[in-house]
Design a protein around this nucleic acid. Structure first.
Length: 165
DNA sequence: AAAGTGATCATG
DNA sequence: ATGATCACTTTG
């Protein structure tokens, strides 16, 4: 889990190419390579849910690295995040895509994840694996954060596997 | 291009 | 209590 015990922008980059393993009570298993992530970093990041401080929703972000943060967006879509960094230091990485699945709302649908996993820890139900694959990565600004400051919108905190076009 | 959907946060 | 907003997806 050492991959998450670092600042969210670094963790977000390191997570691209890693495998997400989802296990269901009936033993079924889905293994998917992460293709796209975004970092949300501390109360000072005006795009981060912790920008209002320790609210009920954002409380999860103050939990230790390895905590799972799932929230509902636009009333329809569940967003999957992994908390990084130390306790009481709110940061997380949004999983925006896995292999064959693009869009954060589709990732959770594909993996069968909803609010029930919120504020639980990585473990049997959802875990990370590293098979040593180390893809080339491109960075861009984050998506869908028009409400944030210009400065924060400009940060290159979105990380994708480089695709040859 | 625009609706759909409901939790969340700020304000009164 | 109310209203605006939203880390998106699908449909036309």
């Amino acid at each position: 889990m050492t991959i998450l015990t670092r600042p969210a922008p670094e963790a977000a980059e390191a997570l691209v190419g890693k495998l997400l393993v989802r296990r269901f009570p009936d033993g079924r298993e889905i293994r998917a390579r992460i293709t796209e992530t975004e970092a949300y970093f501390r109360e000072t990041d005006t795009a981060c849910h912790a920008r209002f401080g320790r609210t009920k929703r954002a409380e999860v972000l103050y939990h230790p690295a390895g905590t799972i943060y799932v929230y509902l967006c636009y009333g329809i879509h569940w967003m999957l995040n992994l908390v990084t960094g130390p306790e009481n230091d709110p940061q997380a990485v949004l999983i925006r895509g896995v292999e064959g699945v693009s869009g954060p709302g589709r990732v959770t649908k594909y993996l069968g994840i909803d609010g029930g996993l919120n504020d639980t820890r990585l473990g049997p139900a959802l875990d990370l694996e590293d098979d040593g694959v180390c893809p080339e990565i491109t960075r861009t600004p984050r998506i869908g954060i028009g409400y944030a400051s210009e400065e924060d919108q400009a940060r290159l905190w979105r990380f994708c596997i480089r695709t040859n076009v």
